[in-house]
Design a protein around this nucleic acid. Sequence first.
DNA 1: GTAATATGCACCCAGGAGGTTGCATATGAC
DNA 2: GTCATATGCAACCTCCTGGGTGCATATTAC
Lengths: 113, 113
Amino acid sequence: MSTAESTNGLPIGEAAPLFAALGDETRLRLLARLADRGPGSITDLCSGARVSRQSITKHLVVLEHAGLVRSRREGRERVCELAPGRLQEAHGYLDVISRQWDSALERLRFFVE
Amino acid sequence: MSTAESTNGLPIGEAAPLFAALGDETRLRLLARLADRGPGSITDLCSGARVSRQSITKHLVVLEHAGLVRSRREGRERVCELAPGRLQEAHGYLDVISRQWDSALERLRFFVE
DNA sequence: GTAATATGCACCCAGGAGGTTGCATATGAC
DNA sequence: GTCATATGCAACCTCCTGGGTGCATATTAC
């Protein structure tokens, strides 16, 4: 009953860019920092980073575009925070694949017996 | 007690390439197919794909290098199958970040009160 | 032995990603 | 008003990635 094309509300064409956004060390660091210490301005997020502020800004844009982060302007600074809903979707996507794999194994076992 | 640097056994420098491997539509299709219909040869996996066999081969190499797929030679063909352990690790990684986010929210709420 | 099948290998190409720098602009501090 | 701070924008560079082609090689089928 499961096609390889769509999985619980998260089409393959949408899941790929989501994982791609997670597939960069600098961005994972940003997410970990946001998750660990809560919201912060761009300058906050730059402290300790090995790359320039512009680079961080671009990564934040990628994360925001992927729905993993949202930001708002506060005075002269932009405050970013984690948007965990999208993480749950990625989470669920991996679940579906694992489950398909399990049932495929089961079918295989059935054939063998 | 959680640093932003490492999360339960999956260092950030290892998680990034793992997600990067998941961040491509063609590769997600391959994984979905392997999960859904079980192991298959490269030619099997090429049927229905929009890209050349060489392209599929390269994607399989990426997946195998990321630990998501393993393959063995069988006669003149190479049979690939899903290696679900790695999926679980990615799964767990997202879990950790979500959990950190939750506790960060809780700390924040504590400060406000 | 010969032909067909299934891969592997080596290049080539275009486009996008990640980084940097320099300069413009908006806001808060004094 | 003036200055320092926090970003936004744009141009540029380099490298990696995804895709393609042509040809060599190994196996199985006849």
